[in-house]
Write a protein that binds this DNA or RNA. Structure first.
Length: 481
RNA sequence: GUCCCUAUCGUCUAGUGGACUAGGACGUGGCCCUUUCAAGGCCAAGACACGGGUUCGAAUCCCGUUAGGGGCACCA
């Protein structure tokens, strides 16, 4: 069996969104599953649409997701160059070959002629397509135009009869009458190839074995197969991936909020979760198991389970999945991931302390960025809160006072607050002695210590804050009561 | 308009003619646990778009209908 070679071939028009990257992921998984090659190629044949840092954003997204490539514009490879704009001579050569074979022809129609033609077709209620007038040019007419040096494009001479069968491993074979296929432009008048020309030539030259691309390409699929036929090349295996939709069932776009993985990364989603989630968008293992590490995905990913219908991107499930990965993650790794999110929130916390924070927060956050508001009180010098909160529901000020005094006394006798189990035990005993429910007792203490009604467990928090800060907060609360 | 693709719980999906009174997960509701919040456990509601065939038998095959989506560029 020949080695699997797949590619991700985006055009550098901005940060790739989840939909594009999901397709890239399928390619990458397939390459890794087979020990094959994953190639990054830049489809920059439209100068007008290009964005300056487009390629950089694409590479950054891929790197973040851990999708490493074996050949690409930055690292080269034996099939380079990997920028289509640097392969112009190659396309020219193959276009000439098609002309020589009679499988393509020069077209001298101007933009104006074409729009005029389409307008008339529309008026007559006909499908809009090139009417092949230049294909019908006589040798004399052709020579005349050539002599005048008129701008020209190269068009594919689609067979007038018959039909073409498009082999697709996700949709199954699709057969299209050739009469429905337009004489597509292959080479633009500026010497650049169109997507159709470049993709076929490059996939063939680069030895691509499987093409997985978005569903939106299926309508130009016939042109591609026809081109392979015209060249006498064997096409790679094709699979068109279902599109990813937003919650409104429309194709995912910026309108739906975050769509770039870079944004997701900044919001505190884990690579592991993002990869896991994207893999399950249009692909399933067995319908039962759905939590996978990237390595596990590589192992179990196969083409036969790719869906043919579109999938809606469900943020709630991503959140759940992120939380799952957060919990199963190694403590040290989680510590490292959490660090920047604390720093960014203005909290200076050393790695050792974050390590202690991990068991306190890992089951309470769904995203990394949720850590700061959860633990900030431990690192601030002063906390602000409404003293009224010190008296809980169904409690009197006297009871709160008793609770805080008891806590002050219990904690005060301890050398340090390092023994969480002991603290908890002693505090519970104190509550019982006062005839207070744990919820009431700890509720008051929680406000005194944190200023919030929702926090991680108190014993763990006190341990991290240390005795002086803890005692000082209780004292301050006592003053306010 | 025309060509093409798609159609199982709200969402992601399992299902490839009989094991389907259609399974799992997210979400939702309830209960349990509980130091708040989570997490966890248990339970519940919830789907084969519609209509025709084919077949002893259809979520599964075929044909229509409907509804979504995509294309119809010297854009990818």
């Amino acid at each position: 069996m020949s080695v699997v070679r797949v590619r991700y071939a985006p055009s550098p028009t901005g940060a790739p969104h989840i939909g594009n990257l999901r397709t890239a992921l399928f390619n990458w998984l397939w390459a890794r599953h087979n020990g094959g090659k994953f190639i990054l190629r830049v489809e920059d044949t439209d100068q007008a649409r290009e964005v300056d840092n487009g390629l950089e954003l694409i590479m950054e997204s891929l790197r973040f997701l851990g999708m490493n490539w074996d050949e690409g514009p930055d690292i080269g490879g034996e099939y380079g160059p990997y920028h289509q704009s640097e392969r112009l001579a190659v396309y020219k050569k193959y276009a000439d070959e098609l002309i020589d074979k009679g499988a393509a022809y020069y077209c001298y129609c101007t933009q104006e002629e074409l729009t005029q033609m389409r307008k008339e077709q529309e008026a007559r209620g006909e499908p809009t397509r090139y009417d092949r007038r230049c294909r019908k040019l006589t040798a004399q007419e052709r020579a005349d135009r050539q002599a005048k040096g008129l701008p020209r494009v190269v068009r594919l001479a689609v067979p007038l009869e018959g039909s073409t069968t498009l082999p697709d491993f996700v949709h199954g074979d699709i057969t299209i009458p050739n009469a429905d296929v337009d004489d597509q432009v292959l080479m633009k008048s500026d010497g650049f190839p169109t997507y159709h020309m470049a993709v076929v030539v490059d996939d063939h030259l680069m030895g691509i074995t499987h093409v997985m691309r978005g569903d939106e390409w299926i309508s130009s699929f016939p042109k591609h197969i026809l081109l392979y036929n015209a060249f006498g090349w064997t096409p790679p295996q094709f699979g068109h991936m279902p599109v990813v939709l937003g919650p409104d069932k429309k194709k995912l776009s910026k309108r739906h909020g975050a769509t770039s993985v870079l944004q997701f990364r900044d919001e505190g989603y884990l690579v592991e979760a993002l990869v896991n989630f994207m893999a399950l968008l249009g692909w399933a293992y067995d319908g039962e198991r759905e939590l996978f590490s990237p390595d596990e995905l590589i192992e179990v990913f196969t083409l036969d389970h790719i869906h043919s219908s579109p999938a809606v991107f469900d943020r709630a499930k991503l959140d759940w999945m992120n939380a799952q990965h957060l919990r199963s993650m190694d403590a040290q790794a989680l510590t490292e991931r959490l660090h920047p999110f604390l720093t960014r929130a203005g909290l200076t916390v050393d790695a050792e302390t974050i390590r202690e924070l991990v068991p306190l927060v890992r089951e309470r956050i769904k995203r990394l960025d949720e850590i700061a508001p959860l633990v900030d009180f431990m690192f601030q010098d002063e906390i602000e809160y409404d003293p009224k909160l010190l008296v809980g529901n169904k409690m009197t000020a006297a009871q709160s006072l008793d609770a805080l005094r008891a806590a002050d006394e219990v904690l005060g006798t301890l050398d340090s607050l390092d023994d969480e189990a002991k603290i908890e035990h002693d505090l519970r005993a104190a509550a019982e002695k006062l005839g207070l429910k744990p919820a009431q007792f700890f509720g008051v203490l929680r406000i005194a210590l944190t200023g919030k009604s929702v926090t991680p467990p108190l014993a763990g928090a006190m341990k991290i804050m240390g005795k002086p800060k803890t005692m000082q907060r209780i004292a301050r609360a006592l003053e306010m009561l």
